[in-house]
Amino acid sequence: MKGIIFTEFLDLVEAQSGYETVDAILEEAAPPSGGAYTAVGNYHFSEMVSLVTALSQQSKTAVPDLLRNFGRHLFGRFACLYPSFFKDCNDPFDFLQDIERHIHAEVRKLYPDAELPHVTAERTGEDTLRVQYRSCRPLGDMCLGLIEGCGAYFGVEFDIQSEPATDGKDFAIRRLDAASRSEPRGIEAIS
């Protein structure tokens, strides 16, 4: 797993709960890498599992909620770190439909060994979209958070129904606030 996920996760924990919490979960999880994450490094997924588990125990918050919260935060960070993927898009459905074809394709060029999930999106009506998340990692809730972050970024309120699937999760998304669909509200809208 890319180091940026770890650094972003720990940055969020620090921002929300202080570095002592970060230190506590690192001490608790005792990851083999020693917790000295760098955004450009690669780390085993199990370290993330240990960290989230430690945070859940520490904060008495369920893992799915933590992951969903992290996903929402991560979308904003992506928008901030990689603006080129966002500049020509004004619609959250278009963006979600473009993930596999455009964003993941570019990521693979940079990191040929990256293990990316399959995220396919299909319009089911004028204001509805069906997203299928498939991965060897159980991060469906983080995906839900990312979709919510996407809606917030573009200023569109979503009604999202999710259901588990083999190797992933399916999401049925309905646009609630059709009037403002083409006015992205930006990163502030996510937090």
Binding site: D23, G34, A36, Y37, T38, A39, V40, G41
Partner: peptide
Amino acid sequence: RRIERERAARIAAERLL
């Protein structure tokens, strides 16, 4: 510990670089 982790992270980043 934070200083140690960040130093280790910097070294790791430099090595990677």
